[in-house]
Nucleic acid binder design. Sequence first.
DNA 1: ATTAGCACTCACCAGAGCAGAGTGCTAACA
DNA 2: TGTTAGCACTCTGCTCTGGTGAGTGCTAAT
Lengths: 347, 347
Amino acid sequence: MSLSQRKKQILQAVITEYIKTAEPVGSRTIARRYDLDLSPATIRNEMSDLEEMGYLEQPYTSSGRIPSQKGYRFYVDSLMEVKDLSAGEIAWIQKIYNIKLKEIDKIVQHTAKVLSAITRYTTLILGPQIQKSTFEQLQIFPLDAEKALVILTTDTGFVENKIIELPRMLSTEELFKVVNFLNRKLKGLSIDRITSSMMREMKVELVHQMDFIEQAVSLLEESFSFEKEKKVYLGGTANILSQPDFKDVTKIKKIFDVLEEETLLSKLLEEASAEDRMNVIIGEEIKIQEIQECSLITATYHLGEKTIGSIGVLGPTRMDYSKVITIVEHITQELNNILNDVYRKKS
Amino acid sequence: MSLSQRKKQILQAVITEYIKTAEPVGSRTIARRYDLDLSPATIRNEMSDLEEMGYLEQPYTSSGRIPSQKGYRFYVDSLMEVKDLSAGEIAWIQKIYNIKLKEIDKIVQHTAKVLSAITRYTTLILGPQIQKSTFEQLQIFPLDAEKALVILTTDTGFVENKIIELPRMLSTEELFKVVNFLNRKLKGLSIDRITSSMMREMKVELVHQMDFIEQAVSLLEESFSFEKEKKVYLGGTANILSQPDFKDVTKIKKIFDVLEEETLLSKLLEEASAEDRMNVIIGEEIKIQEIQECSLITATYHLGEKTIGSIGVLGPTRMDYSKVITIVEHITQELNNILNDVYRKKS
DNA sequence: ATTAGCACTCACCAGAGCAGAGTGCTAACA
DNA sequence: TGTTAGCACTCTGCTCTGGTGAGTGCTAAT
């Protein structure tokens, strides 16, 4: 069943007002501040209907109304008008975003900070995924008899480093032989293609070519066990504390506890932005119980054609969806430009 | 003027009790819970004296007493008995600290997390300083015509990478000439010895050796402008929210705002641990106004002989100094062991 | 279908009254 | 002279009360 034009107007008015004030909205307020040419009584009746239909809620008997989750959903999907940024706002963003950094992780961290400063909410950015890049070179520096530093670089300027245990009984010479072998084999391959089946193949080949098989294989395995965990960059976590929605310290505590769980956040962001377009998740649609009084707006960012990570803004369900969506859209665009500028493939 | 034995006992009792309960402590409580064989009235008189001398405070007329900053100071310096960890506690710490990581930044981050989990306060760790390590190798990978990836490695397994603008008109060949020159010159030098005077020297030398001076010099400069900013690793920031001392959201907000200022924190830690031993800074002794209701306990950690960073635990002034000091001592020791184990110099 | 009017509900606030914890002072005691 | 019992007093924190105002739901009139 669809809503009458008038009901939509009233729903929109209630939500807009509630987003602004964080207070339950009464019929008089609507009548006064939005010229719908209706008396409070009529608005009351409509609001009563809207409540019955599940779009509004009453925190307590005879209080004003607040939007329900369903209300927000409908607002975001069909009611909200996404306005463009003014030239002034764009200039302002430009000014504080203004990036001189070139390292991808720094860029992303700075973006999180700036985005949270602009929106006044908390920003989560799922770090760029090395998986999408192309293998450039693997290098190895022995540190002592047992350990070596392995550095993996990609065409996009990723540098991953880790320290591995050296297999016993492997001479320096042999070590470099294996490394050279790997470099020959892998050059130009995308990282996520270097799968376990591929590794198996290489093992077989190693068996034929070399006589120190076992050690070489374990070296190979260790070298490629680069962290699959995805880094999440946070910005403006303190902003949560400015929200009147959360004046209860125990509630805040729960949210912060979630924010300290990187794995949880990375899953959240990954699922949210699975479809590679702007996405809004409202309240209990979020799978993490502790933050179901929040909403999350996500988008993805790209390097060339490939999606390499995602951006999320987390605020109370009462957050200013339209404003945040515009800003996230803009920032994502900027980030894409910066990244593609710095890391554009050589020719 | 020094305190009588009895006054000391009473002061200690008040502080111990207040640390436990976070409530103003009255004379009856002391008489009941600590067997000093004194009547409440006598204790009252002594407490009154202690207040006059500045060791105690009364939040309001005829309430119990709470320790003043001076009180805490005296307690930490002369009263507190630092007890050793029990075998059980040590085993427990061992269990959750249990590190398999080898990369220095991961180790430090994990330490911050564990330390905050054990103490239930917030942990700040000033990241290991590359300055103290020894130059191993500089490498350069051209990304495109204008940019190149520079990787600096040290003997201790540090890997710093940055992207630089290539000077125009510098051929790949020339590029590698400069890099080779640098590697020859710098090999084995400690990073903090690579000062600007040293750079000047090298510039002079370059002038004599090569005919593409200008470009080489600018390359040199860019390559060595590695971040001097010190990274601070945080753990357990959410713990602040569990402290009954901070039930006021605006207070909490202020603290969190400070925690988001990395530069501020790194300065704080650096100053606090300047003397290279365990240090306790109480309340207004902290230079940052917003967190003057907190205390900070710091220690330094080492690689070989060299101090490479510092560890701090931040809690309310009412924090359990003795417990935290013991734990920080223990964890610092563990961290030293781990680091020296992983990064011990090759012979 | 809309609206004016009215009784009713509930949160919020201020003030009053009360219990409990704790102090400071005085006077008695060892 | 130091210690202690006793007592009046203070202040917080809690509950209860009544009043106010915002807001509703219902009914009846337009």
